[in-house]
Design a protein around this nucleic acid. Structure first.
Lengths: 248, 248
DNA sequence: TCAAAAGTGTTGGCCCTACACCCATGC
DNA sequence: GCATGGGTGTAGGGCCAACACTTTTGA
């Protein structure tokens, strides 16, 4: 069914179910093949991509709404979620629904609460809903244009990720259980948007004393097999409370 | 007039004027006599103190609403404002208006957007509005109990202030034009909640190369007259972009 | 055997800590 | 002149960048 029909059909139900004015948009990040990716969806009858989002039910905490939205889109429930900013300009979604009746739920003025989410790439099953035709990961260094102000929301999410790198379990939530030092470094470089010195990164991270070196290495690569590590959760979390020392 | 009467009288107008569901709460900080203070108000017929707040007009950006609310409370327009978190739990204001009719504007479920503001203490004229009986600065290390979840909002504001100390013009906006190194240090200690080494603080700050040493000193104190400094705005702002280096 | 990637060594400089010392001021 | 607080000196250690060397791997 075309988008317009669906929206009009759902509109009345939405007025009943959700609190007005408020929406949620999510920047869902993952890390795969040395590149940081963000989840984007394409709505029916639209050319531009958007961030997945939704609304807050009348009897639901805002944080719980974000969890629900994430689950509906990724099939996954225990996802690391962090609210980062609320976007409240008048003209955010201006023009987007201008051909629709004023009573349409989607045509309201929305103030949108932004959340970023961190997921382990292979654990996610992308789900295409009734409103959209596609749902896919895009590498952050080669993004398609975003609809509405979703470009701004994405940029703010990425900036927040950068700022919180020393205080939040970002590495832990984007990497698989076991990972190599070069993989960890690539992740840091992707988030920071700059190259880091290999040897110094290696020793700096070991000095934090938050990793456990495993008795295995990543075989199968074309060259020397790198050692595998995992986070020592106890030490990791207590180090994050104080913040990892040092500037990137 | 008692609070109940006023609220009921204003309710209808509020439904017309503001977008529903959304409110704004502000933690307004200042620095005076070596202590960090936060602006609190006491509503009529209430024992507990609250943070000043307000609502968003239907044709108004959320940021502009925050500016308007600040101006109404402090008489001041050019105030440093920073949105820091949005509080969306169902039970935030539970029970507060339970004796009122359900149609009362104030009895809605509100999701509140938190802003912190930084002001130069002597520039502010506190304004008591129709809803409140008092409006005063409280030192953050000796706070009266807050109403609703305003204690949580305040704590989050203070935490954000701490986290942003190296990246935002916090010192500049809380201090007067001219200040001494010991005053600057007291401010940092108040925000961080811990003592810092005097000599090291002094040199660390000078090393940033963002201060201008003035040809005056603060006379009148009981001891050696400390030198006066001011921020070199150009250098200061460009240093903040990269972030001041070092952990406190 | 060779290129490339991973792990490790080394060096000089800067910043941080800590403590000590001197200077200026009002009592 | 004395106590107090402000400005400055200094020694040791840690972290850092930069670079080089060694080891391991698959082709």
């Amino acid at each position: 069914m075309e988008l317009k029909k669906i929206l009009e059909k759902r509109s009345e139900e939405s007025w009943e179910k959700y609190i007005p004015t408020l929406s949620i948009d999510c920047a869902i990040f993952s890390f795969h093949e040395t590149s940081l990716k963000v989840l984007t969806i394409k709505m029916k009858d639209q050319d531009l991509w958007g961030l997945p989002g939704g609304y807050v039910q009348k009897d639901e905490n805002v944080d719980d709404a974000a969890i629900r939205i994430l689950k509906d889109r990724t099939g996954n429930e225990n996802i690391y979620l962090q609210q980062f900013y609320t976007f409240g300009n008048l003209n955010r979604s201006e023009d987007f629904f201008k051909e629709y009746p004023d009573t349409l739920w989607n045509k309201q003025r929305f103030v949108s609460i932004g959340y970023y989410a961190l997921v382990d790439y292979p654990k996610v099953n992308l789900i295409v809903d009734d409103f959209s035709t596609a749902c896919q990961w895009q590498p952050i260094d080669n993004l398609q244009p975003f609809m509405m102000d979703h470009g701004v929301i994405f940029e703010k999410a990425l900036l927040t990720l950068r700022e919180q790198l020393n205080n939040h379990p970002i590495g832990y939530n984007l990497l698989p259980e076991k990972f190599t030092m070069p993989e960890l470094q690539k992740l840091y470089e992707a988030i920071l948007g700059k190259k880091l010195n290999r040897g110094n990164f290696y020793r700096k991270f070991l000095r934090y004393d938050i990793l456990t070196k495993l008795d295995e290495s990543r075989k199968g690569g074309a060259h020397k097999a790198p050692d595998l590590y995992s986070f020592d959760l106890e030490k990791y979390n207590s180090a994050l409370k104080e913040g990892l020392k040092g500037n990137w």
